[in-house]
Amino acid sequence: MTTTIDTPAPVSAPRPARRGHGWRSARSAIGTIPFFGYVAVFLIIPTAIVVIGAFRAPGGAFSWVNIKALGTSTVIGAFVSSVVLSAVTAAIGAVFGGLLAYVLVTGRPGSISRRIVTAVCSVLAQFGGVMLAFAFIATLGQAGMISNLLRDWLGVETTGAYLYTVPGLILVYTYFQIPLMVIVFLPAVDGIRAQWREATETLGGSTWVYWRRVAGPLLAPAFLGSLLLLFANAFSAYATAAALITQSNPIVPLQISGAITNEVNVGHADLAKSLALGMVVIVAIVMWLYALLQKRTAKWLG
């Protein structure tokens, strides 16, 4: 007969290992202090100021005045324009950027064309502001290169005035939205394996079946996530619109700028905070949805 003696488990784990682990954690935490300091100064504190300021009257007392101002036709119009501008440019960017990403993936991995396109997209996705506005004015403005060519060769007169409206902004924003889509969507398309298509075929499925039942559902979360990221990118863009549109404030970032710099009515600074609060809420919702979709994509294609 065999007798088994239970050995009591040690009361505590070896301390030196714990201490080492704790020290490593502490060192890692110290290294992140500059980052969190930066985030606190330039994100958390300004957000807190915006949130608090949106509910304060000029005298400092609690007030719904600024929030109520969000219901005026001008502000609602600006939010509608911003949402339409962001949604349309996000949709255009997602469709064309998505197609470009797919074309890149179907080519030879590491090919020169792929490296060139991804490098160019990385640059163009960050290209905005005065530089971008000037590029479009110099190309499509009243005396722009293409405008001149159209006039001289085809007799088509164009003032380029549309560039200074919301539809013009749509055209300009797609310039950085499409490359941004390529950059953020490419990893997901790269994650699609050739074996899935081949397995679908051997099981009796057509190309349509593959896209509808396999690749489509797999890429949908990443596609929608990228679409939301593009929406947020356009929604919060300011410099390009500010450089192009100087006579009115048709979108929310320009409204905020106008409210801050309004020298006639000092109380408009608090309206800017309520407008900013509206933007924060919309972007927060969008980014929350984006995070949810990214989580799902990482599970499937990671």
Binding site: R193, Q195, W196, E198, A199, T200, E201, T202, L203, G204, G205, S206, R213, V214, P217, L218, K299, W300, L301
Partner: peptide
């Protein structure tokens, strides 16, 4: 391929990741 009536097992990573094991087997 889709009409050849052949079952194929690949080297690896061929299961559809958004489907359960049962759904994968049900696919065909």
């Amino acid at each position: 391929t889709s009409k050849r009536d052949m079952g194929m097992v690949f080297q690896a990573y061929s299961l559809f990741p958004h489907m359960t094991a049962l759904q994968n087997v049900e696919f065909g």
